[in-house]
């Protein structure tokens, strides 16, 4: 109880920079959940999404961010596989952007102490880098949409195996990048 009171008292120390970043986390999580959710949403589900989106903003360093991202992916799969929805390119790109922004803003919020005095240049540089990544991903998405025949590709078994090997190699590469000295 004493700890909880101390935490509530500490809330008064929060500064503008970390609050802004946590706000971005919340907006990205909520928008992403709305975009990924299938069909028309009942009001109760909206409330659930609100609560779900607040958790990563409160604890950006915890596992909640991963869970919300996985929820978004699961809902996207459910919408497209179970309900057979045909999402527009705009919705697809917006969901991808929300997924990335949630991850990226949470990564920043996790390393910013909540009561820190933050230099504006830090936030500006972060925003520019995020915009660059989103721009590059957007170009890649348009290229994929142009090259590939459609959203669904029927693959032969050989292509499936090759694809899986490529994915495994990509994941291994990313993991190795993080771990190498």
């Amino acid at each position: 109880m004493k700890q909880l009171l101390a935490q509530v008292r500490d809330l008064g120390r929060i500064t503008g920079g970390p609050l802004l970043v946590r706000g971005v986390v919340f907006v990205a999580a909520f928008t992403g959940l709305l975009l990924a959710a299938p069909g028309e949403l009942p009001a109760r589900l909206m409330l659930g999404f609100l609560v779900l989106a607040v958790i990563p903003a409160i604890a950006p360093g915890g596992i909640a961010v991963t869970l919300v991202m996985l929820t978004m992916v699961a809902m996207w799969l459910a919408d497209t596989l179970l309900f057979g929805a045909q999402p527009s390119t705009g919705r697809l790109l917006a969901t991808a952007a929300a997924l990335y922004l949630l991850h990226n803003a949470a990564a920043l919020a996790a390393v910013l102490p909540y009561d820190a005095i933050v230099d504006n240049q830090v936030l500006l540089r972060w925003a520019v880098r995020s915009a660059l990544v989103l721009g590059a991903a957007g170009v890649l998405a348009i290229l994929l949409a142009t090259v590939l025949p459609g959203m669904y590709i029927t693959t032969p078994t050989v292509a499936l195996v090759v694809g899986l090997v490529v994915v495994a190699a990509a994941v291994a590469l990313l993991t190795r990048l993080g771990r190498r000295p």
């Binding site: 992916v73 996207w76 697809l92 790109l93 969901t95 991808a96 952007a97 997924l99 990335y100 991850h103 990226n104 990544v133 989103l134 590059a136 991903a137 890649l140 998405a141 994929l144 949409a145 990509a170 990313l174």
Partner: peptide, 9 residues
């Protein structure tokens, strides 16, 4: 496309 920004970043 959903995975692209994450992997790229």
């Amino acid at each position: 496309i959903l995975a692209a920004p994450l992997a790229l970043s």
